[in-house]
Amino acid sequence: MTVEFDTSSPKFAEYAEPGRLVTGEWLEARLGQPGLVVVESDEDVLLYETGHIPGAVKVDWHTELNDPVVRDYVDGKGFADLLSSKGISRDDTVVIYGDKNNWWAAYALWVFSLFGHEDVRLLDGGRDKWIAEGRPITTEPTVRERTKYPVVERDDSVLRAYKDDVLAHLGNPLIDVRSPEEYNGSRTSAPAYPEEGALRAGHIPTAKSVPWARAVAEDGGFKPRAELDAIYREEAGLSDGDPIIAYCRIGERSSHTWFVLKHLLGFENVRNYDGSWTEWGSAVRVPIVTGDAPGEVPGRS
């Protein structure tokens, strides 16, 4: 029951997978269509309650996609329970949007992808652009009939990198999407964010610094293909066939970049290191580089 792709945008047509994005106009015209579920995922856990796209359900990263005890995502049963309770079926087209230029929306999309949910898309520009365009918002609670989402085990082997994977990966392209201050080691978290969760500051040796927001256009949507190619291929030196790992502080900003590399630019082997700096910056004896230069691969003993 997959919903047709949004082919209305010349900008999308240039991307490797144009169908991964939808415009506000396309979405507004299809609200309530069977087979389509709109999901809001925000940094602020209450933002959805202040008004959301009519019919949208909320999926919260902290309280719903994370395991409450272990630092991990929910398992296959947890995900099936969650999506069933939200009224989402395995073959539904899911369109996710959120605050902060879709950081958490991209994070949710990535987690849905770990469970192999096939048709999951982002609303280009997210919540802010939808509102800026004067599209409808409601505080009316969404009621969807419970579904029976199947229990599918999460596959971490393709899209997710663990710390040991990153160590083994050194020498291959790494993209650090945090702020320049976090990259060079003057801070452990983004400016205006709490200093939290990492004992050392700096970056993983050889990682190139490409702050996530460089992929965002002035209207809050993604930049056109040519501009993204200039940043990631020409400037950061990524080439087709490269295995790539992106990281940030906890994996949410790097999900945004992961989405760009994987779905908009078509790099096939892109993983998100969700442990990111809160793990690397506190791990014992992993190599760290400070300063603005990427640094060298340390010698292995």
Binding site: V45, H62, T63, P68, P194, E196
Partner: peptide, 14 residues
């Protein structure tokens, strides 16, 4: 703690 998450709640502690 569960409804909002401990990380978010730490903002109120601060």
């Amino acid at each position: 703690r569960r409804a909002v998450s401990p990380l978010r709640l730490s903002g109120m502690t601060g």
